[in-house]
Amino acid sequence: MKKLINDPESVVSEMVAGFVAAYPKKVKQVPGTNVVVRADAPVQGKVGIVSGGGSGHEPAHGGYVGKGMLDGAVAGEVFTSPTPDQVFEAIKAVDGGKGVLLVIKNYTGDVMNFEMAAELAEVEGIKVEKVIVNDDAAVENSTYTVGKRGIAGTVLVHKIAGALAETGATLEEVAAVANKVVANLSTMGMALSPSTIPAAGKPGFTIDENEMEIGTGIHGEPGIERSEIKTADEVADILLNKVVNQLHLEKNNEVAVMINGLGATPLMELYIVNNRVSSVLKEMDISVRETFIGEYMTSLEMAGCSITLLRLDQQLSELLDAQADTIAFKK
């Protein structure tokens, strides 16, 4: 394991400290926690939006704290959901009187910890709504299982819910639009190499020089299936296909596209993937309103990428276009 760290036990607190030190005009830390909130939090008369999860997904989620997106982000240990007390601190720090929306990625741990935090907040009289993001097309949905995971598409939930919250909308309205995004959102990922949790010291799985994993999540976990390594075009086709089917996209639909790098994959390769994605969508007469390419939701130093599509309508388009001024996402 080769990492630029001091002590595996303190990576999260040092990361948060280094992050806050870099952007004092944009964010502040809730003392004694790994919670980061807008420098001007709580914003009175605005619904607060809190997200978070395990660390190791940077720039998620601290990078999305700011005007037009999140009010607060909670950083758990590496790949470990944050605890209820921390989430509760975030809720208290951002509540400006209109209630707080929790954007939760669909993992058992995240759901349970955020739920317990919501219960604590309600006891204190803070109105809380939850939206569960489950954009991962790799996982089958079933009533008997936990269902699909939340992955990179979550960033677009932050963007659009955040934009509506800025307009002074109610908690119910903001939760509704977040759920609308979730209903129109699908992501599929793949990995060429695993990532290593600092405290574990060795990679989450091993993978041969001529293999790749399809359907990986963002927690250094193995994917849904393993296959021979393929070309960028073939990979793009596999991922895109799954996502297009999942959303039942049709001719003349309009979408936003996100090509997300998982950590170690050079931007060059993401652009090459987009070269294929954009031309396939064109052939399908699906129009692309905006393309996001970069590292939005990573898995430490995993090599690989995910493709996200969000089907847009008038409302979602306007909110996607709205101003955002965060560290990692600016419009």
């Binding site: 395990g54 240990e77 959901s81 209820p84 741990g109 349970m112």
Partner: peptide, 12 residues
């Protein structure tokens, strides 16, 4: 445990 374990096992 609730505030230090985290993940799925912490709340459990």
């Amino acid at each position: 445990l609730l505030s230090k374990v985290g993940g799925a096992s912490g709340p459990l």
